[in-house]
Computed example of a mutant assay.
Amino acid sequence: MRFQGAEIKEQGVTFAVVIVKKHVIDNRSEANRIITAFQAQVFQGRPVILMAQDSRKVPTYYGRDDIARFMASVPLHAIPWKEYSIS
């Protein structure tokens, strides 16, 4: 599986942002399940925030409240996106 994401360290906290489809964030139980899976299988227990864009490319973040609020203030072009591949 391939996905787009980023690892970010801010104010001593390292966390991950993973791009998902909007319907994932709209379904809280699915979003929480995906966060748990990414934490366990990819990001070694670090906090994971999900990001989806609407049809106008406006991002929405879901996950730990303090990190999601912080990410809402970060321009998309400033995030160090990369493609991940997991099996």
Rank of each mutant, 00 (worst) to 15 (best):
V42F: 00
G45S: 12
I86E: 07
G63C: 12
Q53C: 13
R33F: 06
R64V: 06
I86G: 10
Y62C: 01
A31T: 07
V18T: 09
R33V: 09
F70R: 14
I19M: 00
H77G: 13
V42Q: 02
T14K: 12
M71A: 03
K22F: 04
V18M: 05
E83S: 12
R46E: 14
P75T: 08
P59E: 00
Q11E: 14
V13M: 10
M1Y: 12
P59N: 00
G5E: 08
G45I: 03
D65G: 10
R28P: 15
E7F: 06
N32I: 09
K21W: 09
K22Y: 02
M71H: 09
F43R: 08
W81I: 13
Y62A: 06
E30A: 11
S55L: 11
A68S: 15
I34F: 03
Q11M: 11
V17P: 00
D65T: 15
N27R: 04
V18E: 04
E83K: 08
A31H: 00
K57G: 02
Q44G: 04
A78H: 09
V74R: 03
D54S: 05
A72R: 06
K57A: 06
I35H: 10
I79T: 05
F38V: 07
E30V: 15
V42M: 04
R46F: 02
L76K: 09
H77N: 15
A72T: 14
R2Q: 15
S73K: 15
E10S: 13
M71L: 13
V20K: 00
L50D: 03
F70M: 15
I86W: 01
M1V: 06
Q4R: 07
D65Q: 14
D54K: 00
M51P: 05
K57Q: 13
P59R: 10
M51C: 07
N27M: 01
S55I: 08
Q39I: 12
A6S: 10
A68H: 08
I67S: 05
I79A: 04
I19W: 00
E10T: 10
V24R: 09
F43N: 05
A31N: 04
D65L: 05
Q11W: 00
E83P: 05
E7S: 10
Q53H: 03
Q4T: 11
A37M: 01
E10R: 11
E83H: 08
Q11P: 04
M1D: 13
Y62M: 06
I8K: 11
V48A: 11
M71K: 03
G45E: 05
D26N: 14
R64D: 14
A6P: 02
K21E: 11
S87C: 15
A52V: 10
I67A: 07
K82E: 11
I67L: 09
N27W: 01
G45Y: 13
I86M: 12
D54A: 12
I34P: 05
V48D: 06
G5F: 11
E7L: 01
